[in-house]
């Protein structure tokens, strides 16, 4: 692992994330027959928010201000573990679990900040987030177990070290499908949550951040796009074999963009699920991952 590769990874990690919501938005606009916002819209949003002042609720305490900050910090450290086109330099055996729990920490901080506002809306969002994420967690761990059995490594670098379609195609499909469902749920996309909805009662992630504004909201927006990038990178590395060198970056970028577009396609072609149906789909993801483990154990 040379310094240059680490530097490239770091730069991509810092700069690329806000592009993904742009791609998703553009895909949805194309499907809807509209022109849609420009690809770089999220960058504009974040920069504008950074330049603003802040309004806080009287109810809130330091927890409200700490939430977005801690959440972004956890996501950044999680990002340092995730392999992009190059392997991650800080990887170690067992980092996959640290990754999962760092995402958990980010979620914990966001939920705490949401509850601090003392509003029913935010409480509702936090409650749903807690419920759905706790069901998604076993799917992730089982998928990791299956990948470990297939690849023999406990680090994200090894587990997502390039697709092995010839060895275990069916298992790979199951893991990929399960993880895609987890990606959609973790990143609050349709069919689990509708980021574009305007009715607070039906939101999950958006409603938790209703009272945030200014730089805090910028942290949140950047953090959620970073999370999307991390998940996308894992899925792309799982499903697509990456060639080394500059070509690797090209394939990786293409893959991540295609995945974002796929999310956009799902969002354009599906309605969001009823809240009571969400756990069922997540349990299905758990079953898929469990099945993949069984295949890997055989």
């Amino acid at each position: 692992m040379n310094v240059l590769a680490a530097f490239e990874n770091g730069a991509v990690l810092l700069l690329l994330p806000p592009l993904l919501p742009g791609i998703i938005g553009k895909t949805k606009a194309v499907f809807g027959g509209r022109k849609g916002p420009p690809f770089l819209q999220s960058y504009h949003d974040i920069l504008k928010l950074v330049g603003k002042g802040a309004v806080y609720s009287r109810t809130t305490t330091a927890m409200f201000r700490l939430g977005p900050v801690l959440s972004l910090a956890a996501l950044m450290v999680a990002g340092a573990l995730v392999p992009l086109a190059h392997d991650s330099p800080t990887s170690f055996p067992g980092d996959a679990l640290l990754f999962a729990y760092l995402l958990g920490l980010a979620r914990f901080a966001t939920m705490a900040a949401a509850l601090d506002a003392g509003s029913s809306f935010e409480g509702m969002g936090a409650s749903r987030e807690a419920a759905f994420s706790s069901l998604a967690e076993p799917a992730l761990v089982l998928a990791l177990a299956a990948l470990f059995r297939a690849t023999g490594g406990l680090s994200l670098n090894r587990m997502f070290g390039g697709a092995q379609w010839s060895v275990s195609g069916a298992g790979l499909v199951l893991i990929g499908g399960g993880l895609f469902l987890v990606l959609l749920s973790e990143n609050s996309r349709i069919p689990f949550d509708d980021p574009a909805t305007h009715l607070e009662l039906t939101m999950i992630h958006e409603v938790m951040t209703l009272d945030h504004g200014g730089p805090d909201l910028a942290f949140i927006l950047y953090g959620s796009s970073l999370k999307l990038l991390l998940w996308s990178s894992l899925l792309v590395r799982l499903l697509v074999p990456l060639p080394p060198g500059a070509l690797g970056w090209a394939v990786w970028t293409g893959g991540v963009a295609a995945l974002a577009a796929a999310v956009g396609v799902v969002e354009s072609s599906m309605a969001r699920l009823k809240m009571t149906r969400v756990p069922q789909v997540l349990v299905l993801a758990v079953c898929a991952a469990a099945f993949a483990v069984m295949l890997a154990l055989k």
Partner: peptide, 14 residues
């Protein structure tokens, strides 16, 4: 064949 079998099982689950 493996794909088909996995698909079959998954459909039963679904």
């Amino acid at each position: 064949a493996q794909f088909l079998l996995v698909g079959t099982l998954f459909l039963s689950l679904a």
